[in-house]
Nucleic acid binder design. Structure first.
Lengths: 364, 364
DNA sequence: AGCATTGAAGTGATCGCTAACATCACTCGG
DNA sequence: CCGAGTGATGTTAGCGATCACTTCAATGCT
């Protein structure tokens, strides 16, 4: 049975090495003004005792803050997950520690709940503000400790420029590009299966993807169909997209993300509509699985990892003005054309192919 | 510009309320021996000052430990992610805080690196030990603070019984079930595309899924083909599975998880092999997307969330013996038959038409 | 009335660490 | 040969909380 022997502290090390605790602290923190001989003694004592610094005590004592807390709701989506990876990498390269605290979308967190997630007041925080709980959290922290927070989310270039605590990509622009692509392919119009954030039902959440999509349609003088709201899950998307998929006049659907796109693909298949022959589907995010579906998803790639890295750098700048303010710079969103998009079937053929097609056999 | 006004401490509250700091502490921690009038005064002061307790200070001072750190490498897989959700929920219901620290599989973490992830020595920790970095971390913590750690991973019933710090499901059994199912369908043998953990290339990692699979084949007196090792990514799986998919004598593949299964599905499609006509594919984990692929994946469902919950309860028990030792209890793994599995095509029909196969089509 | 009991609140030490300042050699230039 | 520098360490005072006591007044019981 392992005895819970109390962990060695800086004092234990000091005693063993025959120096003061402060000297130990200096060694641990790599201060230059420690004699080599002393340093060795201390290092040896540290090794002997298996000493490891207590980070809690360290930050309590007002040492340099070297931790970030990431507040996120849904980390199952590729975007947030990739951004988190970016944050992690950037942080680790500087030896900062990263904590993730997951907000349960099912729970309705009170403002106090959210703030209670932070280990201490003023804890540097990055918020994944791409969904409702995230948006809430953003607002709360903005009120509480605006100088030590940064939010990642879908924002327009103007918003990003106006708010020094925002990091993100121009989702509207990306959606516009995808929509234009579908129009160029010859589709009369493009329908939109929208993620919850795009329905604008909660404060602060603008419908960026939906906005870019509708703008292009309007500019092209096309009919702008009502966007179809969907939840985040496959099941919700599958259900929401049914009417769209059942309607033979719908020839192109821009989906709010690749999860919705996969659900749409499935629904189309079950409805007997051939993709991309009868229906073009474009996703969003280039989730890893999207290259391996059948047919493979056409989607918009975004460099979330860079965004995460950018968020971390910005946070560091905001905490400590001496670090440079990073300029948001990452690759532009890029449309990846795979197999779910193509020109609409000519009207003449359209009528004749109402009969559901045996997909399995025809593709081989 | 928001001024970084220092956050209120327990002393500030005490001064404002005209009581001692200790009384404030009592109020905050809900001690019963505070007069109602006093409590109100303090509460009011707390509200006025926007005071919130500093969790760092709290645990430094030796208050009850109410935080867990989860060490995980790949959280993009459904299993770990669901387990994490389980931990989160269980922890939150008790008002514990949860931090996640991500181990980068690319980095080779030294033992010290791993230990440095913990905010302090003795920090209660749950390790997702399903992959190489996780296994490493498990070993390190086992040496360092065995009394305050629990690991989640694929283990046999015997291992689970033998190690009081282990939580998991019997992956071997689940794999055996899936293999038996394919055999019963009439396949001569079943091939296996194995996740890295199943190749047994690193210490402590036994090939549970692979083991269950091979055991059944052996018991049935079938040929046991070499398992095909794959990485975790779609790309690696896609590449690894090529030879299997190209070989017409291969009629059934058990994949180490649903990601590998999706890649296999894709590879089969590109190789012109019909699923499940020419080839049956069975996945593992019931990842959300698996119901929405085309054809929908047959897979093994596991209740990871319960496992996560179990891990948290076990950890609590190990830290504090007064809490009951939870008995591992969650639903058995369950095979979900969807559309990628079926009987092999009779040899004579091999080249000809599709044998009608019963398909579970409706999802949602 | 007299004294032990109990409840409410306060005091001081402590957790492990860092910041800021104090101290104590040693140098070194004039 | 002395005061100023400078480098290496030690000392002290917190950081924001909790724990273990102590204090003081209001009760209870005989």
């Amino acid at each position: 049975m392992a005895q819970a022997k109390k962990a060695a502290s800086i004092w234990d090390v000091a005693r063993l090495a025959g120096v003061s605790h402060q000297t130990v602290s200096r060694v641990v923190n790599g201060s230059p003004r420690v004699a080599a001989a002393t340093r060795d003694k201390v290092l040896e004592a540290i090794a002997d005792l298996g000493y490891r610094p207590n980070r809690l005590a360290r930050s309590l004592a007002g040492g340099a803050v070297e931790s970030v807390t990431v507040l996120a709701a849904d980390t199952s989506l590729y975007g947030p997950e990739a951004a988190l990876r970016g944050i992690e990498k950037a942080a680790r390269s500087l030896d900062w520690s990263v904590q993730v605290s997951v907000l349960d979308p099912a729970d309705t967190h009170s403002d106090a709940d959210i703030v209670a997630r932070l280990p201490r007041a003023g804890e540097p925080t990055i918020i994944m503000a791409h969904d409702e709980p995230g948006m809430r959290a953003k607002q709360v922290l903005l009120d509480t400790q605006p100088h030590a927070m940064v939010a990642i989310g879908p924002y327009t270039a103007e918003e990003l420029a106006a708010s020094p605590w925002l990091v993100g990509m121009d989702d509207g622009k990306a959606a516009a590009g995808a929509t234009r692509y579908l129009l160029d392919l010859g589709h009369d119009t493009v329908h939109h299966l929208a993620i919850p954030t795009s329905t604008g039902t909660f404060g602060g959440g603008k419908a960026h993807r939906a906005e870019g999509w509708s703008r292009v349609l309007r500019e092209a003088g096309r009919e702008v169909p009502d966007p179809v709201p969907s939840g985040w899950t496959f099941a919700e998307a599958f259900k929401a997209v049914q009417p769209l998929v059942a309607d033979p006049s719908v020839t192109a659907i821009l989906c709010g993300n690749d999860h919705l796109a996969l659900a749409t693909l499935r629904a189309a298949h079950l409805a007997g509509r051939e993709v991309p022959g009868d229906l073009s589907i474009v996703g969003f995010d280039n989730t890893p699985f999207s290259a391996y579906t059948t047919p493979a998803l056409t989607t918009v790639n975004q460099d979330f990892e860079s965004v995460g890295r950018g968020a971390f750098e910005l946070l560091r700048h905001r905490i400590d003005n001496s670090t440079p303010r990073p300029k948001p710079s990452w690759p532009e969103p890029e449309l990846i054309v795979r197999e779910t998009s193509g020109p609409p079937r000519p009207a003449s053929l359209h009528r004749y192919s109402v009969q559901p097609v045996q997909r399995e056999t025809s593709t081989v």
